[in-house]
Design a protein around this nucleic acid. Structure first.
Length: 207
DNA sequence: CGAATGATATACT
DNA sequence: GTATATCATTCGA
């Protein structure tokens, strides 16, 4: 089982590509997996946002800003950039592109695939409606992705992304402006948010 | 609609 | 070093 999961893990060449918008679309339908505090959890990614580096006013790395926090975005693709937002929520991003090009994809929504009990316990909820983890804050909380894990490699055994053979066809992808970035001026209108409108129920483990 | 809640970046002394 | 504004959100009233 573990052997199989290694084979399906996305490899370096997936993350180091240049087009972060394309990668954001391709991440829809992929399985985000974590192994944290001895608990395994998996969820199918259904909503993403692209943050396109130093020319994107919405990005923390806009203008090439390099700080202790944003340094992780300058890592080679295939790392986790997780930071604390609004004092209470950890937001999980996938770093893309090559070293020193600070592109990232924010994972905004997912559908619980396994480890649902763990997710409920972590979030303190009684039920996940339609298995849905709607929103980047609650998603990270459910998967155990605390902001102190920022900089973690996606090729280790803590957090990684797998291809389960689930494909989301282009006509099932809705693109829209990104959420909560009104400070970004004209870049706030870029259609860098992607939502898979496909029904993933057939993949879900009955719980 | 607005409070919760704290790390971070930036602008001061 | 200290102060303060800000924030890629969430949930409940």
């Amino acid at each position: 089982m573990f052997y199989k999961s290694i084979l399906m893990k996305l490899d370096l060449s997936f993350y180091t590509r240049d087009d972060v918008v394309q990668i954001s679309r391709e991440l829809l339908g992929k399985a985000l997996c974590t192994n944290i505090d001895g608990k395994h959890a998996e969820a199918i990614i259904v909503e993403t946002e692209a943050y396109a580096g130093i020319n994107d006013k919405a990005s923390h790395a806009y203008g090439g800003r390099r700080t202790k926090r944003t340094e992780v975005m300058f890592y080679e693709g295939g790392h986790a950039y997780i930071y604390l937002c609004y004092g209470m929520y950890s937001l999980f991003n996938v770093v893309t592109n090559v070293k020193n090009i600070p592109h990232a994809v924010l994972i905004r929504g997912a559908v619980a695939l396994s480890g649902t009990e763990t997710m409920l316990k972590r979030t303190g909820r009684k039920k996940l409606t339609d298995g849905l983890l709607a929103g980047p804050g609650i998603l990270s909380k459910a998967l155990g992705l605390h902001f102190t894990l920022t900089g973690t490699s996606l090729f280790g055994d803590t957090v990684w992304i797998e291809d389960r053979g689930i494909t989301v066809s282009p006509e099932n992808i809705i693109s829209a402006p990104r959420i909560g970035i009104d400070y970004a001026g004209e870049d706030a209108m870029l259609p860098y948010r992607f939502v898979a409108k496909q029904d993933f129920n057939e993949y879900l483990v009955v719980s």
